[in-house]
């Protein structure tokens, strides 16, 4: 992260932020999906494990 690296314009920064939000939402959706499928596949068995 040196000062003489690529400097982004305001427009590029704005679009990067929009892309980051989209990636964040996609990852969040993936978390929800894995949670849902875990419940669907295991059901009550999700708590049935050796301690």
């Amino acid at each position: 992260m040196t000062e003489d690296g690529i400097r982004l314009t305001e427009e590029q920064k704005r679009r990067r932020r929009a892309r980051n939000i989209a990636i964040g939402l996609a990852i969040g959706a993936l978390v929800v999906l894995f949670y849902l499928v875990t419940i669907v596949k295991l059901g009550p068995g999700v708590v049935n494990r050796p301690l």
Binding site: I6, L8, E11, Q12, R15, R16, A18, R19, A22
Partner: peptide, 12 residues
């Protein structure tokens, strides 16, 4: 090479 990062969400 020097003009990357222009793509908006709609472009992707």
């Amino acid at each position: 090479a020097w003009s990357g990062g222009h793509g908006g969400v709609g472009d992707y």
